[in-house]
Amino acid sequence: MTETSRPTAVALDIDGTLLDHDDQLSPAVIDAVRRAAAEVPVILATGRGWQTSKPVAERLGLAAGGLVVCSNGARTMRFPAGEVVDERTFDPTTVIASVREHAPNARMAVEEHDGSYLVTAPFPDGDLGYDARIRVVGDDELAPEPVTRLIIRDPEQSEADFVELAERLGLHGVSYFVGWTAWLDIAPEGVDKSTGLKVALAQYDLDPAGLVAIGDGRNDIEMLTYAGLGIAMGSAPDEVKAAADEVTKSVQDDGVAAVLNRWF
């Protein structure tokens, strides 16, 4: 899309884009998103699961019947009922075994259909959402059936350590995303946020050329390149900024509002 054309839809990452690292959502961003949502579809596109995405959609006042892309594109849900519009799964058995070999102290989690999590050990507070329901299980009970995502976390390691871990794991037949901290998200092969956005735009009969997407993480790169206009947050890693068409302010400086205020 051109600088002067008006968006036909907006896709927004949540953490680090809408919400800061204290889980705060600024009044300026709420106001800008609500004004945009009154005129075009606003689609949340997040690595979060449905249960922790839905409250953000509620805080933003998004319209009933709208779509939320969750779990890095593996699930597309209808708000607020939680109807599954699209779901992609994979068998994580070989990845789990490889993680245990290369990162024996790592914690793993999978998201269940009801939005709760099975974990091999408790995650740090808030990592899976402060109100997330979790159940601790053994490795052999973690994934008795195909899953939408496998989360790998080690609070004792760094982001750089997990970039190296992803290489050592030799991940084949899956997609993966390294987060801000020692966090690795494993998704079905070929699945990323753009996967869910394709599903969502088809529901609205819209073309990606009119889509504005805003994000800050490595898991946003495919979404930013898929959209007609992809915008990285000011605090995004360099590779995310390089993939975007432009860069806005940081989440602390209401970067999303700065973008949406151009048109809405």
Rank of each mutant, 00 (worst) to 15 (best):
V69M: 10
V69H: 08
V69D: 14
C70G: 10
C70Y: 04
C70M: 11
S71D: 15
S71N: 12
S71R: 05
S71V: 13
S71G: 10
N72H: 12
N72A: 13
G73S: 13
G73E: 12
A74M: 11
R75C: 13
T76W: 05
T76G: 08
M77A: 04
M77R: 04
R78C: 06
R78E: 14
P80G: 09
P80Y: 05
E83L: 05
E83A: 15
E83T: 12
V84Y: 01
V84D: 03
V84M: 08
V85I: 15
D86S: 15
D86Y: 04
D86T: 06
R88I: 07
D91I: 01
P92N: 03
P92T: 02
T93H: 03
T93Y: 00
V95S: 01
I96R: 00
A97S: 13
V99H: 02
V99N: 02
V99Y: 01
V99Q: 03
R100S: 05
R100Y: 08
E101Y: 02
A103N: 01
P104Y: 07
P104V: 09
N105E: 15
A106M: 09
M108W: 01
M108I: 07
A109K: 05
V110Y: 02
V110C: 04
V110D: 04
V110G: 02
E111Q: 12
E112D: 12
H113V: 14
D114N: 13
D114I: 07
G115Q: 02
G115Y: 00
Y117W: 15
L118C: 05
L118I: 00
T120H: 09
T120E: 07
A121E: 11
P122G: 06
P124L: 05
P124N: 05
D125T: 08
L128W: 04
L128R: 03
Y130R: 13
Y130N: 12
D131T: 14
A132H: 08
R133V: 11
R133Q: 13
R133F: 00
R133W: 01
R133I: 06
I134V: 15
R135F: 01
R135M: 07
R135H: 10
R135N: 06
V136C: 11
V136F: 06
V136N: 03
V136M: 09
D140H: 15
D140I: 11
E141M: 13
L142A: 12
A143H: 07
A143C: 13
P144A: 12
E145N: 12
E145W: 10
P146S: 14
P146H: 11
V147N: 03
